[in-house]
Simulated assay, not measured.
Amino acid sequence: MVKTFCVPSISRLLTRTGEFHHHTQKRYDDTGLLIAEILQWGYESERGAEAIAGFRL
């Protein structure tokens, strides 16, 4: 999650869309759920691949 904030283009997007200020808890919760899917099922599983695809949205 920290890496997301270190990439300048992503930080600008999150700031511009208000995600930093208006949806902080939702972003935190969603990131935790996605990472849990990858850790539990592996990144090569169908569920893991879907979780990774969710990061790209």
Results as ranks from 00 to 15, higher is better:
Ser11Cys: 05
Asp29Ile: 14
Arg27Ser: 08
Trp41Ala: 06
Thr15Gln: 06
Glu44Met: 06
Ala36Met: 03
Arg16Tyr: 01
Leu34Pro: 00
Ser11Trp: 03
Asp30Tyr: 02
Leu39Phe: 07
Gln25Cys: 04
Lys3Cys: 04
Ala36Gly: 03
Ile10Val: 13
Lys3Thr: 12
Glu19Pro: 00
Gly48Leu: 03
His23Pro: 00
Ile10Lys: 13
Ser9Tyr: 06
His22Ile: 06
Lys26Thr: 12
Glu37Leu: 14
Ala53Val: 02
Asp30Met: 11
Ala36Arg: 10
His21Asn: 08
Val2Gly: 04
Met1Trp: 01
Ile10Trp: 03
Ala51Pro: 04
Ser45Met: 02
Ile52Asp: 00
Phe55Val: 05
Leu57Ala: 07
Pro8Val: 04
Gly54Thr: 09
Tyr28Met: 13
Phe55Ala: 01
Thr17Cys: 10
Leu34His: 05
Gly42Lys: 06
Asp29Cys: 07
Phe55Lys: 03
Tyr43His: 11
Leu14Met: 13
Arg16Cys: 02
Asp30Ser: 11
Phe5Trp: 08
Trp41Thr: 09
Gly48Val: 03
Met1Phe: 03
Leu13Trp: 11
Cys6Leu: 14
Ser45Pro: 01
Leu57Lys: 13
Glu46Met: 11
Asp30Leu: 14
His21Cys: 06
Leu39Ile: 12
Thr15Ala: 11
Leu34Trp: 07
Ser11Pro: 00
Val2Gln: 13
Pro8His: 09
Tyr43Ile: 12
Gly32Cys: 12
Cys6Lys: 13
Gly32Ser: 08
Ala49Lys: 15
His23Ile: 11
Thr24Glu: 05
Ala36Tyr: 04
Pro8Tyr: 02
Val7Gly: 00
Cys6His: 03
Lys3Pro: 01
Glu50Val: 03
Tyr43Ala: 15
Ala49Asn: 03
Glu44Phe: 04
Pro8Asn: 07
Leu33Pro: 00
His21Ile: 08
Ala51Trp: 04
Leu14Trp: 04
Ser45Lys: 03
Asp29Val: 10
Tyr43Trp: 11
Gln40Ile: 12
Gly42Gln: 07
Gln40Cys: 10
Glu46Ser: 13
Asp29His: 13
Ala51Phe: 06
Val2Lys: 15
Thr31Val: 08
Glu46Thr: 14
Leu13Thr: 10
Phe55Cys: 05
Ser11Ile: 01
Gly42Pro: 04
Gly48Gln: 02
Asp29Ser: 11
Leu14Val: 05
Arg16Lys: 11
Leu57Ile: 09
Gly18Ala: 09
Glu37Phe: 08
Thr24Met: 13
Ile52Cys: 01
Ala49Ile: 09
Leu34Ala: 10
Thr15Asp: 07
Glu50Tyr: 01
Ser45Ala: 05
Phe55Trp: 10
Cys6Phe: 05
Leu13His: 12
Gly42Asp: 04
Gly32Asn: 13
Ile10Thr: 07
Thr24Leu: 14
Leu33Arg: 14
His21Pro: 00
